[in-house]
């Protein structure tokens, strides 16, 4: 299991590096990784979840994919607080509503937290959060931060919605009102628009949350 995890991570890095090098050659980026942009193909990635399963973005072709940047330590994400979208029921509510609109929607968490802690500890703490929420979601480990930087993920929670063609359709906040438990929801609106063959009316918002503590 451990070998597989390490190998797939190496593959993911290789894939990510290949992507960025080609973009850099095309003159789209300078020294930093390309940021995902709404309306353009979402950057490809391969990451392994805390259970050892490998996920490739291309595997989800034909399905709407929601990526949520996650940290077990941030009080707006998985941290123990009333603001935690995982602990206060917001994620559960969102997933249920999305499934009602589009049963094939894929919702995964991406964890780019490094914070100077061992990866195993972060994975264990992440699993512990999900064990309390009643919603089982894969937690994709991005310990090196390669995918997070490629997407320009700034905070947890920072959400991305990708359509079945692999095009990024929404990036930004989890919802419009961080204090509501069931407020207006940009992500649900994006998933609904995509299901109806429309372009989401709100494509980009300012995410709120804790800064992603990337590997330095």
């Amino acid at each position: 299991m451990q070998v597989k995890t390490r190998l797939s991570r190496r593959l993911a890095i290789a894939a990510a590096a290949a992507c960025c090098v080609s973009l850099a050659h095309a003159g789209l980026v300078d020294d930093v990784a390309a940021k995902a942009e709404v309306g353009k193909p979402a950057p490809a990635f391969t990451l392994t979840d805390t259970g050892g399963t490998t996920h490739n973005l291309a595997d989800f072709k034909g399905k709407t994919v929601v990526l949520e940047w996650f940290s077990p330590y941030c009080p707006w994400s998985g941290g123990e607080s009333r603001g935690s979208v995982h602990r206060n029921g917001k994620v559960k509510s969102l997933v249920e509503k999305m499934k009602a609109v589009d049963p094939n929607v894929v919702y995964v968490l991406v964890n780019s937290t490094h914070q100077g802690r061992p990866e195993k500890e972060i994975a264990r703490d992440s699993d512990a959060v999900l064990a309390t929420t009643g919603v089982k979601l894969p937690i994709l480990m991005d310990y090196d931060g390669t995918v997070g930087k490629m997407y320009g993920a700034k905070v947890t929670p920072h959400l991305y919605v990708i359509d079945g063609e692999g095009v990024l359709r929404y990036q930004g906040a989890f919802d419009a009102d961080r204090n509501s438990t069931d407020g207006s929801n940009y992500v649900l609106e994006a998933v609904t628009a995509i299901k109806n063959g429309e372009t989401p009316s709100t494509a980009s918002t300012r995410p709120y949350g804790c800064g992603v503590k990337y590997k330095r």
């Binding site: 330590y73 009080p75 123990e80 607080s81 959060v129």
Partner: peptide
């Protein structure tokens, strides 16, 4: 007081 310490801390 409404917040608590983070898990693992």
């Amino acid at each position: 007081a409404t917040a608590q310490l983070l898990p693992g801390v």
